[in-house]
Design a protein around this nucleic acid. Structure first.
Lengths: 211, 211, 211, 211
DNA sequence: AATGAATGAGTCTTCATTCAT
DNA sequence: AATGAATGAAGACTCATTCAT
């Protein structure tokens, strides 16, 4: 077995055909991951599902992990779009509404492609996660941090770092667990109640007096 | 590729000598997992690190995942002892104290063997997780559920299931993230503040009026 | 133990290079079978004797038995050519001559590659025998059956099936035993006498009056 | 894997208990051979089916092949009893009857334990066949040879060796093929006709004028 | 650029056999 | 004598990766 190759693609597919090749490879990887899991995702398999020769695969990706990383990247970008926009909007609203937005956004994000999300979170060695992911997390962190800072006078908070960490971790974990393990908790009446509850969790935690 | 072997051990070593063999195998698996990760934990490697022949390994474990499962089992048992006792004690106390206990217990549990815990939670295919784990989770769920039920009149809660889910998921996630990603947040003054904050998060969420 | 892989090859080598690879694998298998027997014919051994990597072997053959089957196939095809032609010719001749042809053909067939034939008949699990073999046997059966049917009036036979079975089984067994266990019986004067005798055996059995 | 050990048992089980142990081992081997085939007959398996420790197995048998050889031996002895007696009796009768006896004996012999016989003849490397087998074959050969010699004046035979060879090989092959591959040919009316036919095959071959 | 044949290190697993108890 | 834990050589097979065409 050869040594671990780098995670980034080999060349930025400039030409049209190349782009299509790269896309089908990433797409094939995602499909295999979802339908058959990480173990079954061998490079040969991926190439064949993508309708591309194994040689070409290695023309664009230095190795298996790089493909997985590309999938993570792509998925993260999609999340990013959902999250970034929503968060920026929320930043302009008062706490109670902003909190609700944050929660809703968390759930929304986890719903982008739950099957893929599950595989990525359950089967992919965290080592393969590219900078991308961190970027999003840090972005969210900063936005929330800044928001809390700006509203500090309305809030009952000592340590902004801790508060930011708690809010984000909590929302992420609840959205994640709800979408993946208790999807029934997100539909109908219960769904509304769940979002209400999580929002209340945040608001009461953050605000000076009772919410 | 070989058929997926079952997760449960092949025979439970009765004689003294074989118990030692089994122990060193499980121990070796844990060490490799922590130091080199799931991928490196091949049966040959495990056997060699355990100072045991590969044949003996297969005498007691049908395959790699069964060994990993044994490690998870062992670790879960250790957690279990910490958690179970603490939770039962907490069950007898008023909410504010109980909440603090819950939080402390969560942090405590994650501190049992953080390195191992990290590997197990980040790299082990969920499929390898044995019944054991679920048992503990369900146990905790029940305890909390019962507690909330018993204190329902003091609380501001509509849906007990949602509340239980939120409390446990939140505490778990925060303890997990804190121990693994922000250990500095758990020491000294900040540490105290962190536990305070999380406790407050729970209490304010649960209780009727201001916390 | 690995799952029993199928007997048929994985892909039929289209390019020049791969055809050579496949050929040397089959050839190597045959050589090992003859020189060292079935047990020694491991896939690694075969690949190494063929001067081919083990990976390539598995690219074309799903497992050991598939290689053996290919050898059987190849040998059977060679036999087939000898037998088919001779039998068809014999079909046009009167009984006494046809019988002698049948016997001679049987001996001839067993002489194609006696060493290989011995191994194949003595050491190869019948399960590894491909469709091919049956085809030849059935072909011969049909030819003889039809021949006897056509000459029924000259013959002293009640049950055509039994007669066909007896003739073929007998010739096969005698040719086989003679070639493999008593080659001396097939040379010079004795050889002639042997063929005469077997022919007489058939003719007297089949014909109405004295032979 | 260790070198090929000898084929003969280690010690003649003199004591009662030893005898039972040896018997159950041979019996277990036979059962496994019949029910699961040669490949599945591992020494550990045999010992466990025999209800004997693997250590004890090696106390009595130097290796796996020795066990198989013992099974062959046992089976051959049983055949031997059937064959020897019948053949000796037949030796005192005129040709036509003797021939019929020979044929009947052949069929009878193959019916002793057809399942075991099939496995032994199809799956056991001929190398494992002990002296025993040869002894029976040679015994039969001698008896027939002597018989033909004694009746030479009634017969139409040049070469006694050839004739003996032909008779025995033919009967063996037909009985074998009939029992194993066409059992339906041995029952009822067809069964009688089959034996008649084979007898006629021999008689006409051997006798001076038409049979 | 694309192709796909070839590679071989490395994994899993079995099983005949030994030997300490 | 019996036991069964331990051994490890050997075999089957995969899959990431290279490279000649």
């Amino acid at each position: 077995m050869a040594r671990k190759p780098p995670l980034s693609p080999r060349k930025s597919a400039s030409q049209e055909r190349s782009r299509r090749t790269v896309d089908s490879l990433v797409e094939a990887t995602a499909r295999i991951l979802v339908k058959e899991g990480y173990e079954k995702a061998s490079t040969n398999r991926i190439a064949s599902v993508a309708g591309v020769s194994i040689g070409s695969l290695y023309q664009y990706f230095p190795g298996k992990d790089s493909l997985v990383a590309a999938v993570v990247d792509r998925h993260t970008s999609e999340l990013s779009q959902v999250v970034r926009g929503a968060l920026v909007k929320a930043a302009a609203r008062p706490i109670k509404l902003a909190a609700r937005d944050l929660v809703a956004t968390g759930v929304e994000a986890h719903r982008v492609d739950p099957d893929l999300h599950r595989v990525l979170s359950e089967q992919i060695p965290k080592a393969s996660r590219p900078r991308n992911v961190l970027a999003v997390e840090e972005g969210a962190y900063m936005l929330v941090h800044i928001y809390l800072e700006a509203h500090q006078d309305e809030l009952d908070i000592d340590d902004l770092d801790i508060a930011t960490f708690i809010c984000l971790t909590t929302v992420e974990a609840l959205a994640h667990a709800a979408v993946l393990h208790h999807p029934e908790m997100l539909t109908g009446e219960t769904g509304k109640r769940f979002v209400d509850d999580v929002t209340r969790l945040l608001v009461r935690y953050l605000c000076r007096d009772k919410g």
